[in-house]
């Protein structure tokens, strides 16, 4: 087997394993989803049900809920594997840990981020999202939730063996730009401005974040090990 092929197989093995595992355990993708919808429901309960008011808040509320849901679900990335010894096995497999992190981030996004996109579709009806903002909302959430998965992986790796709330405290301040840019996309679309410039910036952050944050996560795993 040549080198490239082995790396890809390693990536595929981890990804497939994580996906199969989360389909076996419904909670892994149900809990963030339900959490998201509950948070969305809390806002009209707290702020009143006046349509125009809710519709101005809608994009921000959806974004905050998505942020919390995806950062609180980091438990499944490394902690469970650490507890049952699987992470040990991964690290001593002789395969690059960087690829492992990449596969785990992708799996985490597929399991939590992608369902959130669907749930946000439902929540646009709850919060009366203004017409024509669906596309900017979905595309900004698509890129934003992946960035959040990357950040969440870093937080999860730094707090291996600890609670998810600690990793949220560490990572939430760093996620401010993602939230601002994500909401900026929608706000500028609402004002009829060109929102692609913000999307490009989100894309640039993804391009730097995928290698950069995965590298930092790899380092964080090793810190927890020796």
């Amino acid at each position: 087997m040549n080198e490239k092929n082995t790396l890809f197989n390693w990536f595929k093995l981890v990804l497939k394993r994580d996906l199969v595992l989360s389909f076996k355990k419904i909670a892994t993708f149900m809990v963030p989803l339900v959490f998201f919808l509950i948070v969305i429901t809390l806002f009209p309960l707290a702020l009143g049900t006046e349509g125009s008011f809710l519709s101005t808040l809608s994009s921000g509320v959806i974004w905050v809920a998505a942020l919390l849901a995806s950062l609180l679900a980091v438990e499944s990335i490394f902690n469970e594997d650490y507890r049952d010894g699987t992470l040990d096995q991964f690290l001593i497999s002789g395969e690059p840990t960087f690829i492992l992190v990449l596969a785990k981030v992708l799996a985490h996004w597929l399991v939590t981020g992608a369902p959130l996109l669907l749930a946000s579709l439902i929540s646009t009806f709850f919060l009366y999202l203004p017409e024509g903002l669906l596309f900017p909302l979905l595309i900004s959430l698509l890129m934003g939730t992946f960035l959040l998965s990357l950040l969440g992986a870093l937080g999860g790796a730094l707090t291996i063996g600890k609670t998810a709330i600690l990793s949220a405290v560490i990572v939430l301040p760093l996620s401010v730009p993602i939230l601002i840019l994500g909401v900026a996309v929608i706000t500028s679309a609402l004002n009829g401005q060109d929102f692609f410039s913000y999307l490009y910036f989100l894309g640039a952050m993804l391009a730097i974040g995928i290698p950069g944050l995965c590298l930092a996560t790899t380092e964080a795993i090793f810190i927890n090990y020796d």
Binding site: I170, P173, L174, P177, A184, Y198, A216, A220
Partner: peptide
Amino acid sequence: SLISVVGVIIIPIIKKSVDWW
């Protein structure tokens, strides 16, 4: 150390985004 190094890279982005906001 790791989180402060990551933070210092993200801080300019935070500042810039807060300006946009």
